[in-house]
Design a protein around this nucleic acid. Structure first.
Ligand SMILES: Nc1ccn([C@H]2C[C@H](O)[C@@H](COP(=O)(O)OP(=O)(O)OP(=O)(O)O)O2)c(=O)n1
Ligand SMILES: [Mg+2]
Ligand SMILES: [Mn+2]
Length: 418
DNA sequence: TCTACAGCTA
DNA sequence: ACGTAGCTGTAGAT
C-alpha cells in the first residue's frame, strides 16, 4: 500500500498494525452497542430547570433595569460595564471586548447582585442546553440507546475524541451535573455499570518517563500525589482532603508539570503570584527529574522536529524553532505534554484491545472510553469475571517502573459506579 | 456558514 | 505571555 514505506521508515508497524487497526473494530462495537439514557428522568429535570431559569431571568431583568438577551456576552457587557459602571477585569481572548467569564463575574459578585444571578443562569442554561435537552434527542429510535462516534484521527496526541454526542464531557463537578450523570444507566435489571479509571495516570507515566526517583518512590509507596498537593495548597491534613480539594489540586499538578507560569497558577488557585512562584519552584526542586525531562523533551524536539510516546506515536512540531516567542513557547509545552498524554492514550488503547478480546463470549459489553476510563454494561452474573479481566487488562497494558493502578466501581448508574 | 465566547470534561 | 487535549450551544456577522 502507499502507507507501507512510511510505516516502515518511521517504525510505526507495531503502533499501526497491533494497536490502531485492531482498535477500529473495538470502537465500532462500542458505538454500535451504545449506552442507555433515562429520557423520562432528563425530561423531568428539563421541566424543573425551565422553571428555575425563568425565575432567575425575571430577577436578572429587575437587577439590570431592563430586558436583554442574557445569552449575549455583548449585551451583558454593556449592562455590566456601561449601564452599571462595574469595573472591568480582563479582555476576551481575541480582545473584541471585556470578558464576562466566571472569574470576572465571581469578583463582581462581591459588589453587585447581578453577576451572581448571571452565574446561576449560566450554570443552569449550560447544563440544560448541552446535556439535559440535547442528549435525549440523540436516542436512536431503533435501539433506544445513545450511540456516540469515537473519533480515532482527531486528537494530535493519540487520544480519542467523541462526538454526537460527546460522551467524554458529561458533567460531574456540580450537584446538578452529578444528577445528569445519573441518567446513564445499565441496559436492564440484570445489569449494572462497571467503571474503571486509571489512578493518577499521567503522573505515573511521568514518573516512568522522567525516571524521577522521588516520584517513583512515592508511587511505589502507594502515595496519592493529588491529595498531597491538596494538603499543601490548603494547609490541610492529607487525611482530610475533600473531593473538591483533590480536584483543584489535580488541576494544579498537571498545570505545573505541563509548564504553567506563576501568573497562570495564581489565576487558577487561591495562591497569589508570589506564593505561586514559590510553589512551582519547590515542586520542581522536589522532583528534579521533571525539570530535566522538560528541558530534554524540548531539546529532542528542536533537534528532531518531533516528539514521541512510549509506543512511538509521533507528533511533528515544526514551530519548535519559530522566531516568534509565543509560537515557540507553545510548541515547547506541547513537546512536554504530548509524550505523556500520548503514552496514556497508548496504554488505554492496548487495554481496550486486550479486554475486548477476552470479553468475546460474555454478555457484558464495553460501551464508553473517557481518556483514562472505561465503562461497561455488566451482566450481574459476570461481575467477578469482568472485574478481573478489566483490572488485568488495564494494569498490565504497559509495564512501567511504577505500579499501574485502576480504580474500579460498580453501580446502578454512571455517577454511583464511579 | 463561520468566528468568538463561554463552559463542560480528561 | 501565561498547563494541553477535546466538543458544543448561542450570538452575531457574513
Ligand atoms: N485538568 C486535567 C485533568 C486531567 N488531565 C489528564 C491527566 C490525567 O492523568 C488524565 C486523566 O484524568 P483523571 O481525572 O482521571 O485524573 P487522574 O487519573 O490523574 O487522577 P485520578 O486518580 O483521580 O483518576 O487526564 C489533565 O491533563 N488536566
Ligand atoms: Mg479519568
Ligand atoms: Mn484517572
Amino acid at each position: 500500500s502507499v502507507l507501507a514505506p512510511k510505516i516502515d521508515e518511521l517504525k510505526l508497524h507495531n503502533l499501526y498494525y497491533n494497536i490502531e487497526v485492531p482498535l477500529i473494530r473495538v470502537l465500532a462495537t462500542m458505538e454500535e452497542e451504545g449506552v442507555k439514557v433515562d429520557a423520562d428522568y432528563l425530561g423531568k429535570m428539563s421541566r424543573e430547570m425551565e422553571g428555575q431559569i425563568n425565575k432567575i431571568t425575571t430577577d436578572i431583568y429587575t437587577e439590570a433595569g431592563r430586558e436583554f438577551n442574557i445569552n449575549s456576552t455583548q449585551q451583558l457587557s454593556k449592562i455590566l460595564f456601561e449601564d452599571l459602571k462595574l469595573p472591568t477585569r480582563g479582555k476576551t481572548a481575541k480582545k473584541t471586548g471585556y470578558s464576562t467569564d466566571v472569574k470576572v463575574l465571581e469578583e463582581l459578585a462581591e459588589i453587585h447582585d447581578l453577576p451572581k444571578l448571571i452565574l446561576e443562569y449560566r450554570q443552569l442554561s449550560k447544563l440544560k442546553s448541552t446535556y439535559i435537552d440535547a442528549i435525549p434527542k440523540l436516542i436512536n429510535k431503533e435501539t433506544g440507546r445513545v450511540h456516540t462516534s469515537f473519533n480515532q484521527t482527531i486528537a494530535a496526541t493519540g487520544r480519542l475524541s467523541s462526538t454526537e454526542p460527546n460522551l467524554q464531557n458529561i458533567p460531574i463537578r456540580t450537584e446538578i451535573g452529578r444528577q445528569i450523570r445519573k441518567a446513564f444507566i445499565p441496559r436492564d435489571e440484570n445489569h449494572l455499570l462497571l467503571v474503571a479509571d486509571y489512578s493518577q495516570v499521567e503522573l505515573r507515566i511521568l514518573a516512568h518517563i522522567t525516571n524521577d526517583k522521588t516520584l517513583i518512590n512515592a508511587f511505589r509507596n502507594n502515595e496519592d500525589i493529588h491529595a498531597r498537593t491538596a494538603a499543601e495548597v490548603y494547609g490541610a491534613d492529607i487525611n482530610n482532603i475533600t473531593p473538591q480539594m483533590r480536584r483543584a489540586a489535580k488541576t494544579a499538578n498537571f498545570a505545573i508539570i505541563y509548564g504553567v507560569s506563576a501568573y497562570g497558577l495564581s489565576q487558577q488557585t487561591e495562591l497569589d503570584l508570589g506564593q505561586s512562584k514559590d510553589f512551582i519552584e519547590t515542586y520542581l526542586a522536589r522532583y528534579p527529574g521533571i525539570k530535566e525531562y522538560m528541558d530534554d523533551s524540548i531539546k529532542f524536539a528542536r533537534e528532531n522536529g518531533y516528539v514521541k510516546t512510549l509506543l512511538n506515536r509521533i507528533r511533528y512540531l515544526p514551530e519548535i524553532n519559530s522566531k516568534n516567542f509565543q509560537v515557540r513557547q507553545f510548541a515547547e509545552r506541547i513537546a512536554i505534554n504530548t509524550p505523556i498524554q500520548g503514552t496514556a492514550a497508548d496504554m488505554i488503547k492496548v487495554a481496550m484491545i486486550t479486554i475486548h478480546k477476552k470479553m468475546k463470549n460474555m454478555k457484558s459489553k464495553m460501551i464508553l472510553q473517557v481518556h483514562d476510563e472505561l465503562v461497561f454494561d455488566m451482566h450481574n452474573e459476570e461481575s467477578k469475571k469482568l472485574q478481573k479481566i478489566v483490572r488485568d487488562g488495564m494494569e498490565k497494558a504497559i509495564k512501567l517502573k511504577v505500579p499501574v493502578v485502576a480504580d474500579i466501581g460498580v453501580g446502578p448508574n454512571w455517577l454511583e459506579a464511579k
